[in-house]
């Protein structure tokens, strides 16, 4: 068995002490509880970006891989957004790096409030962010991304007692190809391409990749569950009566 007194935990303790959101275990906690909370605290730290409090790149990679597996098995519609603050270098150059940090923090906070709790916003690096939106139907993607873009452009960020600045954000998005086990590289590359398009189109705008024709549309589903399926097998399956199919289709939807 490992004895707590044999371990050198000073560095870990110091790390956790300096992090405002970490809670150090009580000194009188049992060794197991103590170790567990140190480990939990370090795990938490290792997944978070210190400046913005968002998920960091490591956490993002982990979550994206998990979504890839889910999509391959379930065909769920998952959207990946890549977001990049426009002309961020100018902010740093004009107002200094502290102002830049404040902008990153304000934008991060704004991004988090724009998405659902189940979504994850990560700091991808520098002034670039990534958002994973599970279970996001293809018709919603653009709406969500536009909402984020508008919210960011509406922010008034106070960077000094006398100065308030505004920034904009460019957004590119790509859905995971449904039913296909993609890879992290391919998926982020596709979202990045759309981000590049947004930047080239003059920034402060949204581009989302059109989904490939694998998804099953509502029309297709309607027809699929339209008729014959659970009906009278004697009716065969040769006629193609659209009005029948609409009626039976709505019954099917209710059953679901």
């Amino acid at each position: 068995m490992i004895r707590l007194s044999d371990l050198r935990l000073d560095d870990a303790r110091a790390l956790l002490e300096h992090d405002p959101s970490s809670e150090l275990p009580a000194a009188d906690a049992s060794p197991v509880v103590y170790m567990q909370s140190i480990l939990d605290g370090l795990c938490e730290l290792s997944l978070r970006d210190p400046l913005t409090g968002l998920s960091n790149r490591r956490h993002f990679n982990h979550l994206l891989n998990r979504e890839i597996e889910a999509v391959a098995r379930s065909g769920e519609s998952v959207l990946l957004l890549m977001l990049d603050i426009d002309h961020f270098k100018k902010v740093n150059d004009t107002y200094g790096h502290h102002a830049g940090d404040l902008v990153l923090q304000a934008v991060s906070k704004c991004l988090e409030t724009c998405v659902r709790p189940m979504d994850t916003v990560s700091r991808f690096g520098g002034e670039e962010f990534a958002a994973i939106l599970p279970n996001c139907p293809s018709s919603f993607g653009l709406v969500v991304a536009e909402r984020i873009r508008e919210a960011v452009s509406g922010l008034a960020i106070t960077v000094s007692p006398t100065e308030t600045i505004r920034v904009t954000i460019s957004i590119g998005g790509a859905y995971a190809p449904e039913w296909v086990r993609s890879t992290q590289e391919l998926w982020t590359e596709r979202a990045d391409e759309q981000l590049y398009r947004a930047k080239s189109a003059g920034r402060n705008c949204v581009f989302i990749e059109e989904q490939r024709g694998v998804a099953v549309s509502a029309d297709e589903k309607g027809m699929l569950f339209g008729h014959h399926l659970f009906g009278d097998p004697a009716s065969g399956g040769v006629d193609d009566d659209v009005s029948n199919s609409a009626v039976a289709g709505s019954e099917m939807n209710r059953a679901n």
């Binding site: 549309s217 029309d219 297709e220 027809m223 699929l224 339209g226 008729h227 014959h228 399926l229 659970f230 009906g231 097998p233 004697a234 009716s235 065969g236 399956g237 040769v238 193609d240």
Partner: peptide, 20 residues
């Protein structure tokens, strides 16, 4: 559930494929 259901389903799938 019943003999013939499967054939009807395949026919249905084919019809949706043909249209879309």
């Amino acid at each position: 559930a019943r003999t013939g259901d499967g054939n009807a389903i395949t026919t249905q799938l084919q019809q949706v494929l043909d249209r879309f």
